[in-house]
Design a protein around this nucleic acid. Structure first.
Length: 425
RNA sequence: GGAGAGAUGGCAGAGUGGUUUAAUGCGGCGGUCUUGAAAACCGUUGUACCGAAAGGUACCGGGGGUUCGAAUCCCUCUCUCUCCGCCA
């Protein structure tokens, strides 16, 4: 949710920022400000009438107490007109609040001034890249063939027991998942993140808090019998731990991490882009989340980028970092960096991490605040990033490190995997 | 799944129609005292909104209703706890 005071006092700046997402969204800001004016007028009107009514009510109380019931009776009759007015103004106020709320909750975040205007992924900015893309390559196998050759993943059984997009990891494939999860979690804990195991189902309030609802209703699996949602990312339960909380300034920054499976319906995608591990309905991911002082959130974002980079470097995977343009960013983000690793057989880049600063957008929705040292209530910034999402890492690893009869694993994984390589069994 | 109890401020816990701007205790913060600390004592201590301010309004799990007036009465929903059943 956008901060109203900022919109009021920096309207043109806000519109300029919003235009980076889509110029057509700018009039949303005017609509919000108009709705807010109407709401405030209603509020004043209501408050004044209610004050009058309260005052008379307590007068009646006093009169009754001192035995002057005739006067009380007279006042009681008089007040009916006022009461009718209150009723009308109250319903006007509720309507005004609803209007404003509807607008506020469906308006996306303002991109940071550094974010380029643009429509989609073709407008994203390349920030940096690392590692060497192999060029030999005619006989490199794609990961789904390697997975089958080495007996790592049973896609067909997944289809049978659930449906497409639900792979079954087998034997060394399952062990590799566990190795990567443990490696990522250990690295996050080393970097100061507190490890959590949150629920995989969340209620609608949590979905709303981080901005998945109402924006992405329909992309989450919904358990209708209990009105719960399967998490699309650990960001949702982790960040919502701090929903409706007032922190102290010295509590910041808060750094959280969790491994969870992620569940996404991803309706309407088919074809070669979703082959193998490219796009799944269920996948594993280690997530990192930070809650920071508003003055330090972009430092925290840099720190998170460095953390994710170090993971990829330790795995030896070539990657590049893209800063998303306004049109390609998610609903709640003010700035997003995507990490993409190179798929040596598919010869394309695969997104393995998305790391974002949401500024106050989620915190306002969640009613997350902190008291600064002077005792004033302020809104902190929230950030999160994948560190990392497993399937495309596995795809890149298999394709990059494949040999004729084995797949050599990067050194950091040896102790986790219990072996230096994946072999044919 | 069955039966019962309950939901009040950071916590505990009063309050069943009008000095409740929610008692009291604990905790927190400030002060007195002290070499320092503890104890004791004094003061202070929720959130949001409207307003330049003075001040006002709302909030006692959510929503609705009765009433001049609701934490308190009525309806409804949700959640929590206890016991039983089932169960990793």
């Amino acid at each position: 949710m956008l901060p109203l005071p900022y919109l009021r006092h920096h309207t043109e700046e806000a519109k300029a920022r919003m235009a980076r997402r889509n110029p057509l969204l700018c009039n949303l800001i005017d609509n919000i400000l108009e709705a807010d004016d109407r709401r405030r007028a209603s509020q004043s009107h209501f408050d004044a009438l209610k004050a009058q009514l309260n005052q008379i009510s307590s007068q009646i109380g006093q009169l009754l107490k001192t035995g002057r019931s005739e006067e009380a009776e007279a006042l009681r009759r008089e007040v009916n007109l006022l009461k009718e007015q209150v009723r009308e103004v109250e319903s006007a106020l509720k309507l005004a609040e609803q209007n404003l709320n509807e607008l506020l909750t469906t308006t996306p975040n303002l991109p940071h001034p550094l974010v380029k205007a643009g429509r989609g992924s073709e407008d994203n900015e390349l920030i940096t890249s690392w590692g060497h893309i192999p060029e030999d390559d005619s006989d490199r196998l794609p990961h789904w063939e390697l997975a089958s050759q080495f007996g790592l993943i049973d896609f067909e059984s997944g289809v049978k027991i659930t449906g497409s997009g639900f792979p079954v990891y087998v034997n060394q494939g399952a062990r590799l998942q566990r190795a990567l999860i443990n490696f990522f979690l250990d690295e996050a804990v080393k970097a100061g993140y507190t490890e959590y195991q949150p629920p995989h189902l969340v209620n609608a309030d949590s979905g709303f808090g981080t901005g998945q609802l109402p924006d992405k209703d329909g992309q989450m699996y919904h358990v209708t019998a209990d009105n719960l949602y399967l998490i699309p990312t650990a960001e949702v339960p982790l960040t919502n731990l701090y929903r409706d909380v007032i922190l102290r300034e010295e509590d910041l920054p808060i750094k959280l991490t969790a491994y969870t499976p992620c569940y996404r319906r991803e309706a309407g995608s088919y074809g070669k882009d979703v082959r193998g591990l490219n796009r799944l309905h269920q996948f594993d991911k280690v997530e990192i989340v930070q809650i920071t002082h508003p003055d330090r959130s972009y430092e925290a974002l840099e720190e998170m980028l460095a953390h994710v980079s170090s993971l990829l470097q330790k795995l030896g995977l070539p990657y590049r970092i893209m800063r998303l343009c306004g049109g390609d960013m998610g609903f709640a983000a003010a700035m997003t960096y995507d990490f993409e690793t190179y798929s040596a057989a598919q010869k394309r880049w695969l997104e393995v991490s998305s790391t974002s600063n949401f500024e106050t957008f989620q915190a306002i929705r969640m009613k997350l605040r902190f008291k600064d040292r002077s005792g004033k209530t302020q809104v902190p910034h929230t950030l999160n990033g994948s560190a990392l999402a497993l399937p495309r890492i596995v795809a890149s690893l298999l394709e990059l490190y494949q040999q004729k009869d084995c797949i050599l694993l990067p050194k950091v994984l040896h102790p986790y995997f219990g072996s230096e390589k994946i072999t044919i069994t």
